[in-house]
Amino acid sequence: MSFLIKSNFNILVTGFGCCKQEIFATQCSLYDIQRFGVNFVSVPEDADILVVQGFYNKKGIIRILNIYDRMKNPKGIIAVGSCVLNENLFNPGSELVSQFRNRVIINMHIPGCPPRPEAFIYAILKFLGISMQ
């Protein structure tokens, strides 16, 4: 992932779920994720990284794959929260999420339900290759 180091880094957050407010809380001046050159955008063509979080049904999965196809290379996916990493919390039988995981390559996994804003920044820094110490 060396191409992303020290570059402007655009993130598109999709889906709806508890993790969303924690991801957007990193914009606030207490955490201030913009220090690392990270921007939140709303157009797939602008985005480098797709953040997948929250609940999806069949239609939602199709939309996400659509968004992912529209993104320009190089691109990556960050999966946030146990709804994406494991299974839909309110629909345990459905295999949609696991099918989705098989279709695309997920570059980063953030566990938690929901993860704290700090965990999200940690993941971004790990992506950017900034050392933790």
Binding site: F16, F55, Y56, N57, K59, G60, R63, N88, L89, F90, N91, P92, G93, S94
Partner: peptide, 11 residues
């Protein structure tokens, strides 16, 4: 609200 219908019957 089609994309919000994600709940299973008897979770």
């Amino acid at each position: 609200i089609e994309i919000a219908r994600i709940i299973g019957d008897d979770y």
